[in-house]
Simulated scan of single mutants.
Amino acid sequence: MSAAPGEIIHIAIKNLAPFERVGHRITGDPSGTYKSRGAGWDFVHLCIDDHSRLDGGQDCSFSQG
């Protein structure tokens, strides 16, 4: 743990792939015809202060095509 607020900040970016259609676990069809190609990405930016454990996040979403 750091001695002062803001001394150490952890930053993470997580990219998430959205679903356009249901997958093979729902349809029971493993042939791959239900793939969500070109659906784009959603990004979540996270920041956590090591001293106070105060956190913040921002959803940065955009789509391709």
Rank of each mutant, 00 (worst) to 15 (best):
M1F: 02
M1V: 06
M1I: 03
S2N: 01
A3W: 01
A3S: 09
A3K: 04
A3H: 01
A3R: 03
A4I: 08
A4Y: 08
P5M: 03
G6I: 05
G6R: 04
G6L: 03
G6H: 03
E7Y: 02
E7C: 04
I8R: 03
I8W: 01
I8S: 00
I9N: 05
I9T: 05
H10R: 10
H10E: 07
I11P: 00
I11R: 06
I11V: 15
A12G: 11
A12L: 12
A12K: 09
I13L: 14
I13R: 07
I13Y: 11
K14V: 12
K14I: 14
K14Q: 11
K14R: 13
N15A: 15
A17Q: 13
A17E: 10
A17C: 12
P18L: 05
P18E: 00
P18M: 03
E20Q: 07
E20I: 08
E20L: 14
R21W: 09
V22A: 07
G23H: 01
G23V: 02
H24Q: 09
H24Y: 11
H24G: 10
H24L: 12
R25N: 09
R25E: 06
R25S: 11
I26M: 08
T27F: 06
T27C: 07
G28T: 08
D29C: 05
D29M: 06
D29F: 06
D29G: 06
P30E: 03
P30S: 08
P30C: 07
P30T: 06
S31R: 01
G32D: 06
T33Q: 10
T33F: 04
T33S: 13
Y34K: 10
K35N: 12
K35F: 10
S36A: 02
S36R: 03
R37V: 12
R37Y: 12
A39P: 00
A39E: 02
G40Y: 10
G40L: 13
W41C: 13
W41T: 15
W41M: 14
W41R: 14
W41P: 06
D42I: 15
F43I: 09
F43Y: 14
F43D: 03
F43V: 15
H45F: 15
H45E: 14
L46D: 05
L46E: 08
C47H: 00
C47T: 14
D49H: 05
D49E: 01
D49T: 02
D49K: 01
D49W: 01
D50Y: 01
H51F: 02
H51Y: 05
H51T: 00
S52R: 04
S52C: 08
R53L: 15
R53C: 14
L54N: 06
L54P: 00
L54F: 07
L54C: 06
D55S: 15
G57K: 10
G57I: 12
G57S: 09
Q58P: 04
Q58V: 15
D59K: 02
D59R: 07
D59W: 07
S61G: 07
S61P: 04
S63F: 14
S63A: 13
S63D: 09
S63G: 11
Q64F: 11
